[in-house]
């Protein structure tokens, strides 16, 4: 038997002070709550920088960073992964709008329309969310151009395939003044990986439904 298991006769003065017998140390409720609190605050501090800009310097363990990403917004699906590099860079690209009548607008023509800037997040279902300033044409203005106001629309990407190649916008999304066909991000021309030549940005929508590399918008 080892020394530390011999009972009371070999107790140290500290043991006697502690109440006569050496107790097995238990964790008090207060200590437990304090430990969990410190752990929660600490882990939040070293990961929240991926979504909260001011904590970027502390972002040791967030899976995304704002600083290294193009135009300070992380990318999930690149143009290369979506196989749209050629079609998105094609100078002959135009956005086809279909409603009561059809119109095709080049990027130059889209830029000539009234521009709106909104601050909206890419809120990814994977757990990060980054706010950005988006500039472009209001979706409802575009639908007015083709004579179809107040309808839901189907938005299609240049992507040849993919689960989110096609998404639908309810009429309330189309009517919202902050729903845009965005042409610029944080004051710069939209990066290819962010959906150049034009992408959808709308409030209250998960990131995967903010369709990039738009090709057509049809009224339903």
């Amino acid at each position: 038997m080892t020394g530390d298991r011999v009972p009371s006769t070999t107790q140290t003065p500290q043991d006697r002070e502690a109440g006569g017998t050496r107790r097995e140390a238990t964790t008090s409720r207060r200590r437990f709550v304090a430990t969990v609190g410190v752990a929660a605050v600490g882990l939040t501090a070293v990961t929240a920088g991926q979504s909260i800009g001011v904590l970027d310097g502390l972002n040791l363990f967030g899976p995304r960073t704002q600083k290294g990403a193009p135009q300070q917004v992380p990318v999930n699906r690149t143009a290369a992964a979506a196989a749209v590099e050629a079609s998105a860079n094609d100078p002959a690209w135009s956005l086809r709008l279909a409603g009561a009548r059809s119109v095709a607008l080049s990027r130059t023509e889209l830029l000539a329309l009234p521009q709106t800037t909104v601050r909206l997040p890419i809120a990814c279902v994977e757990g990060w969310s980054v706010h950005a300033d988006w500039t472009g044409v209001r979706m409802r203005d575009l639908m007015d151009l083709v004579g179809t106001s107040g309808a839901a629309v189907r938005v299609t990407s240049l992507e040849p395939q993919g689960v989110y190649r096609e998404t639908q916008l309810g009429r309330e999304f189309v009517a919202a003044p902050t729903t845009l066909v965005a042409l610029a991000l944080n004051g710069e021309t939209l990066d290819l990986d962010h959906g150049y030549p034009a992408r959808l940005i709308a409030p209250n929508r998960p990131g995967v439904l903010q369709t990039k590399w738009l090709s057509t918008i049809e009224a339903l």
Partner: peptide, 24 residues
């Protein structure tokens, strides 16, 4: 901390889809 970070190391080992994912 280990529970949070080890899956990230594993995912990085598998290879992220693009450079903005798991850059550290």
């Amino acid at each position: 901390l280990v529970l949070v970070v080890v899956p990230m190391i594993y995912a990085k080992h598998l290879g992220p889809l693009n450079p903005t994912i798991l850059p550290g």
